[in-house]
């Protein structure tokens, strides 16, 4: 099976869907001539031309709103935010218009739009460029939220997102763009809302998603070798819809839970998970649910310290040992 990067997996998904459906169009800052700020869209302009691959001005409220308007007419825009952090300047369009227009019209309208781009810390770009808004986005009924961790998932989920008839927000990670993984050449789709057990184990369930899956896998190896602990890792892949059943099945097996997330702790995705697990699997739990999140402050710039602000394998190991105590 070919081994490609996370970046290439996203690009292949875009190219395949552009090829398949003439209504798919890619818009964003520097996605065309510049080949993408993170080179995700490299080569697409050459292949599909300027009608399908469109450079926008730095004007997120304008172009995200424009994409939404076009989606109401049946265009399927895939909008790139250079950073998801810039969602704040398009907030009204994303949350009032994308999330609400179907409801307010009594179901007469749907917006088949995808908004994608990286949403992560860890690159020493300071607080303005390091937001992880998946909890904020998923708080709005009407939208779907995906955070893929591997090239295989990135491709299969993006293809499903582009074909979805609801607004889908797809959150990538700049640090994962170069990560490699096996991706089949034959076409495949991964349904939204289906979690994936990335590692099986018996002593502790780590529920996580995005780059924290990669950190957790590293931590689990060390925990097994050095602490004789068997960790199961559930990768949510999708925040909304949420595959809570796979999480509960794992909890029923291990009876202990550590949630790992690159989120600020207050009202995070993990907060919602902890509520649901205690509500629906209270009797399965042998201990309180533990959580490892980003240290609660705006993203610090200082490079060595930012590593410690975010979840990382060492922090996960420590948190896992505490969860097992």
């Amino acid at each position: 099976m070919p081994v490609i990067t996370y970046r290439e997996a996203i690009r292949h998904a875009l190219a395949e869907e552009l090829q398949r459906d003439a209504n798919v169009v890619v818009l964003g800052e520097e996605v065309a001539q510049f080949n993408g700020a993170y080179k995700v869209t490299e080569g697409l302009l050459e292949k599909f031309g300027p009608k399908r691959i469109v450079d926008t001005p730095i004007s997120e409220a304008g172009f995200i709103g424009m994409g939404l308007g076009a989606s109401m007419l049946g265009i399927r825009p895939v909008m790139e935010l250079m950073f998801w952090s810039f969602y704040s300047v398009a907030f009204d369009q994303i949350l009032n218009n994308a999330a609400n227009v179907r409801y307010m019209s009594g179901g007469q309208i749907n917006c088949p739009i995808v908004i994608r781009g990286p949403a992560n810390g860890g690159t020493n770009v300071g607080a303005t460029h390091s937001h992880t808004p998946e909890n904020v986005l998923a708080n709005h009924p009407g939208v779907k939220v995906i955070v893929p961790s591997t090239p295989y998932d990135a491709k299969g989920l993006l293809k499903s997102a582009i074909r979805d008839n609801d607004p889908v927000f797809y959150l990538e990670n700049t640090i994962l763009y170069g990560d490699k993984g096996e991706v089949p050449e034959a076409e495949y789709l991964i349904p939204l809302g289906l979690a994936d057990v990335k590692r099986t184990g018996t002593d502790l369930t780590i529920v996580t998603y995005g780059r924290c899956v990669i950190h957790s896998l590293k931590a689990a190896e060390i925990l097994e070798k050095e602490h004789d602990v068997s960790v199961e890792i559930v990768d949510l892949r999708c925040i909304r819809p949420l595959d809570i059943d796979t999480v509960l099945a794992s909890v029923a097996k291990t009876h202990r839970v550590l949630i790992v997330e690159e989120q600020k702790p207050f009202a995070s995705v993990g907060s919602q998970l902890a509520f649901m697990i205690q509500r629906e699997a209270f009797d399965e739990l042998d201990a309180p649910i533990h959580r490892l999140a980003t240290v609660d402050a705006p993203a610090i710039y200082s490079p060595p310290v930012e590593t410690e602000q975010l979840p990382n394998p060492q922090r996960i190991i420590k948190a896992a040992i505490e969860a097992l105590a």
Binding site: R102, P141, G142, K144, S160, D164, P191, L194, P241
Partner: peptide
């Protein structure tokens, strides 16, 4: 009238809780 998919269950492709 929140999600197209929830309103069109026979055409739903996603899984999990909406």
């Amino acid at each position: 009238d929140v999600y197209w998919e929830a309103d069109n269950p026979s055409e739903r492709k996603s899984q999990g809780r909406l």
